[in-house]
Design a protein around this nucleic acid. Sequence first.
DNA 1: AAACAAAAATAGAATAATTCTAAAAATGGA
DNA 2: TCCATTTTTAGAATTATTCTATTTTTGTTT
Lengths: 140, 140
Amino acid sequence: MDGLKNMVKERLELHGIKPSMQRMAVMEYLMTHRTHPTAEMIFADLYPHMPTLSKATVYNTLNLLVERGVVRLITIEEKNARFDACMDPHIHFRCRDCGAILDVDVEAHWVPAMPEGVTVEMSETYCIGSCAECNSQKVN
Amino acid sequence: MDGLKNMVKERLELHGIKPSMQRMAVMEYLMTHRTHPTAEMIFADLYPHMPTLSKATVYNTLNLLVERGVVRLITIEEKNARFDACMDPHIHFRCRDCGAILDVDVEAHWVPAMPEGVTVEMSETYCIGSCAECNSQKVN
DNA sequence: AAACAAAAATAGAATAATTCTAAAAATGGA
DNA sequence: TCCATTTTTAGAATTATTCTATTTTTGTTT
């Protein structure tokens, strides 16, 4: 019936995470919202539908998901951690003017040559500048 | 006489920053400590030699330096902002085991093709994994 | 040198994201 | 049903950073 919920469940189980209601809700949120939300945003949006949800659970779940490699932790902003369920190769761009965080697709992520003995588990590239919309408002 | 202090002063003035004692101290610290320190570390190390130094001044100075493009803000760690006075192209590697943050030299930094209209001011690449030393302790 | 304005530094309070703690609830056998 | 384990929960605690209001420093004009 509900294919999405099944995908969510499978994705959790595939990584050895027991699919509780709360974990499914957080995971489903991330899979359906490609907005790189903060923990706070996720909590604020889920809370009305799950009045017993605790902020600690959202943090616990996100930490677990990141640990198990189910979602990406994005540290492009100094203040807030942001999360991304899309694991396809892409990088993140932050607009200094409007604050938006955009995905930029790349064929494969760049991993520079590392010194002998170093092993790389993951790598992230962050670009910062001005988005097309903000740029267009600057010209006259 | 003291070539270092002159270099520090010049580098600040070049970016339109008035070289006060405190700013010089922070800038010199960053130029002589390639450890990607946190604001806290800088304060802790400078304080014994400058007992009137305030933590707010360290934060103010670091923010100013980053704004003016004199130093790099590194967000490779979730908790603490880290700072780097080296502006030559290089990327950062964090060891998940020992926490060290290492520089990795690259010829030029990768900036992926951006969507039409987007302008990029800066980009950072972070790699996370295990450093050579930690890896060597794992094998048996 | 005195007076003044502007810039910078300071101490400590305030803020806010995240983690911790201890208790309650849910889950899954035996 | 009983029990052990896992998960969730609320709120307190922690902590990096920013804010506020005051003081100090700096530079300029007389």
